[in-house]
Design a binder for these strands. Structure first.
Lengths: 228, 228
DNA sequence: TTTTTTATAATTGTCGACAATCCAATGCTT
DNA sequence: AAGCATTGGATTGTCGACAATTATAAAAAA
């Protein structure tokens, strides 16, 4: 066996977790839907045991809300929820930036820069397709988070909060000039990290996230007032 | 039915979760122990289904570490772990203080002050018994965290990080003059919150937590060098 | 008509058994 | 004797069925 391939057994619970998770994030299972264990078990063709394991993890990342003996519902997107979530995100990713400026190696930084260049080229090709921007943005933030080298911080941000963040972004979308500006902001952040200026990276990251929040907030307000 | 009593069915998984969790935090199940599902099922006299649910939640609050198809182990306490954990705690509870200064009602604040007075009297009676100090401290921090009124922040701190924090504190203990100083620091923090001075409350809380960390660090170092 | 009660149905929580996977010890080959 | 394949034991993952609880809706009483 090669040294590169870790033998982590992919279990049925893992598979169905990924399936349901993306279904919720992408909106295939609409927000607010009641979750029925027997129905999902039939739909994904497995027993309830691994399904419940998957549901437990979905609850962990705030994509569903469970009440004992009463079932689970897909979380609803709201302005208050968005603000609470992004309040935390600003703080945590700001911290991640300060730590990344301290702990990232030169090679780590070089890799992120290569990543950004790659994003730029693919974005020029696929102009306007927001999905690639979405994936690229997540990827950039993920790298910085890993760069903090704090396992608890990494766990909270990438395993718990980020799927909900993606849900807001996918369902309410990035639009307008933000898509193109994000690249420059990413560049500025990695530059600050490369200069080992944690405070600046922190500040830039907070502004970056705050701008993103305002963008989604507007979408939420427009959507809320238009057809209701 | 009265309006005060929420009908949340206590399930078997909840019970065994509390039992095992306290057993780990108090050290009855030593750090680093291999977890055997059949053994624990016999010991707590229930099936493996609710036990696995409990283990999943224990993993969530970082008290055990699982690898698929290979079982789970109780987490080991280490200096690096402590630093990573408290780094996050400083940041998050600092944020909690800023938000609490903004969102706590006058009544909330009055209740916390009553709590502190109560702690002071019980501490005078039970001088030296660190357990009460431990419980009182947790209680104080818990109140401030709730005062932030940010559900995600509350969840992360009180449901995920705090049991591990307690494990460090219970197993490595509070000692010396810190026990008595903590009261004054708590007082200062709630005063700052009452004055709606979030920045000061933030600063004081960070110092408070940093002091606690240094205290536990020393215990860890002494223990590590003495009998090894 | 409104409220309370009751019974039915569906859902969740739990159980014991089976299947798949991994760890350790043993025996075989070089 | 050292390294590697193999087998045995134990553990985890999964399944289908049962028990307990809750929500729904119909029926009875105010």
């Amino acid at each position: 066996m090669l040294a590169t391939e870790f033998k982590q057994a992919i279990t049925a619970a893992d598979r169905v977790l990924v399936q349901i998770r993306t279904a919720i994030v992408e909106g295939d299972i609409p927000a607010g839907t009641k979750i029925s264990e027997p129905e999902l078990a039939r739909r994904y063709d497995l027993s309830r045991a691994p399904l419940r394991e998957a549901l437990a993890r979905l609850e962990r990342c705030h994509l569903i809300e469970r009440t004992p003996n009463a079932g689970a519902r897909v979380v609803k997107l709201s302005i208050e929820g968005l603000r609470s979530l992004y309040q935390l995100r600003e703080e945590l990713e700001g911290l991640a930036c300060r730590l990344a400026a301290e702990h990232m190696t030169e090679q780590d930084i070089a890799e992120v820069r290569a990543l950004l260049d790659q994003h730029l080229s693919t974005q020029r090709v696929r102009e306007g397709e927001s999905y690639y921007q979405e994936a690229g943005d997540v990827d950039f933030h993920y790298r910085v988070i890993l760069g903090s080298k704090n396992p608890y911080l990494i766990n909270i941000l990438s395993d718990e909060l980020y799927f909900l963040v993606r849900m807001y972004r996918v369902q309410l979308g990035m639009n307008g000039p933000r898509v193109s500006r994000a690249f420059d902001e990413h560049k500025a952040i990695i530059n600050a990290i490369a200069n080992r200026d944690g405070e600046l990276a922190d500040l830039l990251m907070r502004r970056h996230i705050a701008a993103s929040r305002r963008n989604i907030e507007q979408q939420l307000l427009q959507q809320g007032t238009s057809h209701d």
